[in-house]
Amino acid sequence: MFFEGYGYHGNSFEQSYRCYPASFIDKPQLEAGDKIIMPPSALDRLASLHIDYPMLFHLSNDATNRVSHCGVLEFIAEEGMIYMPYWMMENLLLQEGDIIHVKNVTLPKGTYVKLQPHTKDFLDISNPKAILETTLRNFSCLTTGDSIMVAYNNKKYYIDIVETKPSSAVSIIETDCEVDFAPPLDYKEPERQQTPVPAASKLGAQVQETETESEDAQIFTPFTGAARRLDGKAPKDESPIVVSPANNGKSKSINSMKQAIPSTSRSNSSRQTMGKLVFGSNSNPASRGAQKAAATNETKEEPPKKEEPKFQAFTGKKYSLKG
């Protein structure tokens, strides 16, 4: 294998050429795909080898260790030269007239491809999937790590080949291939903004807590007052009733009632010993007897009252009409 004399040796096609962009031969359609233009001698060599169709090639830049894959469109280039899309030269880091190594290969049919647009503008297209399918019809193969160019509406969109299956380079001619999209390179997730709490709402919450505390402090507790006698005298052996606060209002009233009942019975007994009449008291028979005797003594001491004559009918004097 050698470059001088354009000779070919071996059982496979393998040759080095000087590369130039497609604009040098007025072939702008090359930019919409991955096909190159080779010299006629390459066609003679390929035909003699009986290689598989479609013809696919492995491109390598030995100076930078960059590789890619492509197909062929025509065999009309000058000997020792090939023409390729400019975006492909960018992937291989090639300049005009640099040496490129070309070798024929056979690639498996692709089953999965993951793509990543460079900018979010590609997703703003009305139907990016249809545009991508139309563009890929001009491609023969895809290589992991390459950046392909999609032209639409007088604008160029670059898309990275992130992953290919079943190998790092696959053929996409007459095959059903699943396509997945990664987020664009310039995509940024929206930052979650913490909503500040208004000062008015904080003040309202504080006022509400204060009101709740004041309401708890002003809860009415029954049966906590001091005992009083009906005759106005101070009660004897009376201790103030203390009720322990509880969380439940019902428990407060029940505890207060339990403490108030014995104090009431003590006040009733003291009232009965003083000889005073107590309304609604459940006094014992002895106290009732004492009260009855006291009432009898009071009745005896009072002087008897003279009864006034009662009116009797038809008891007056009689008178005559004659006078």
Rank of each mutant, 00 (worst) to 15 (best):
D98V: 07
D98M: 07
I99D: 12
I100V: 11
V102G: 03
K103D: 05
K103T: 08
N104L: 07
V105E: 10
V105Y: 05
V105W: 04
L107W: 02
P108T: 08
P108H: 11
K109S: 13
T111A: 06
Y112L: 09
V113M: 01
V113L: 04
K114Y: 03
K114N: 05
K114M: 09
K114W: 06
L115R: 02
L115P: 00
Q116E: 06
H118R: 13
T119R: 06
K120Q: 14
D121T: 10
D121V: 08
D121M: 07
F122K: 00
D124M: 13
I125Y: 04
I125D: 03
I125T: 04
I125E: 09
N127T: 08
N127W: 05
K129Q: 13
A130K: 15
I131M: 06
L132W: 01
L132C: 05
E133H: 15
E133S: 13
T134Q: 15
T135E: 07
L136C: 05
R137M: 14
N138Q: 12
F139T: 03
F139K: 01
F139I: 05
S140L: 07
L142H: 04
T143P: 00
D146F: 03
S147T: 15
I148D: 01
M149D: 06
M149E: 11
M149Q: 14
A151G: 11
A151S: 14
Y152K: 07
N153V: 05
N154R: 15
K155F: 09
K156H: 14
Y158V: 07
I159G: 00
I159K: 00
I159H: 01
D160I: 03
D160Y: 07
D160N: 07
V162A: 06
V162M: 07
E163A: 10
E163L: 13
T164D: 01
